[in-house]
Amino acid sequence: MKRSKRKTREIWIDIVVLIVVILVLFPIIWTVLTSLKGRFDISSLPPKVIFPPTLENYHKVFVEDGFYRYFKDSIIIATVSTVFAIFLGTMAAYSLVRYRVGGKFLPFWILSTRMLPPIAIILPIYILMQRIHLIDTYASIIIMHILFNLPFAVWLMSGFFREVPVEIDEAAMLDGCSVFGAFFRILLPVVVPGMLATTVFCLITSWNEFLFALILSGRHVKTLPVAAAFYVTDRDILWGPMAAVAVIASIPIIIFTFLIQKHLVRGLSYGAIK
């Protein structure tokens, strides 16, 4: 009796949950449908759910409007900034965790960059980048994305290093490894899974970043979000191609998200959980 009552309650909860999940998925499904619609199906009323799918929007965006360029720019910027952030961040995390360089202050200081609102440094960055002629180059956007990803990499990697017992390093050194030998040959391989998760996080952050990419982009270098934001203007609404951009930009993100599902909580709450 009590069990069956509980069962009905669980079913009701699941129905509500299903509705929530549909609401969450709806904008995404709607965008995918829109991206496959032809010119006339998009502005038809009532909105069509069944229509002959076409790839003309994808063709327009990538072939006619040259969006492959912004893809290339986004991939280059995300990759290079991530490589630097992981490289520098892993080194820093190692010395912070194993040698407690800077005590409590240094890790906290590095982490406090997380609290820094991007708008607080965007004006001086713009002026300085202009002065050294780095506006509209890969370098300027990459540098700023390293700034966001570096504290993040330090924090996550510190956590992964801390999980490895010090005895492992010490055993390696007793067996004749140098300090660096123990780091590269013993410790680093242990934290590779964590490092991969950190890498994916950094790639996503850079891929999504908008404010710095917006002011540092120009005619030659433009990331995908910036190009997408200017694709839709009030006068000239191209919803079909816009939806195609949205779909293509989101696919790598969604794949990556499922790859790092396990580490998501730790990554997203960084800086706030001790």
């Binding site: 999940v21 969450v24 502005s43 934001a229 839709v232 816009m242 930009a249 599902q261 997203l268």
Partner: peptide, 27 residues
């Protein structure tokens, strides 16, 4: 739970564009 992870990872610019289309007064 897996599906719920999607919105927070998608590029804010991109999903704002999705919503802008849904908010459009005409279609």
């Amino acid at each position: 739970r897996s599906i719920l992870l999607i919105p927070m990872m998608i590029t804010p610019v991109v999903l704002s564009l999705m919503w802008k289309y849904m908010y459009n007064p005409e279609y």
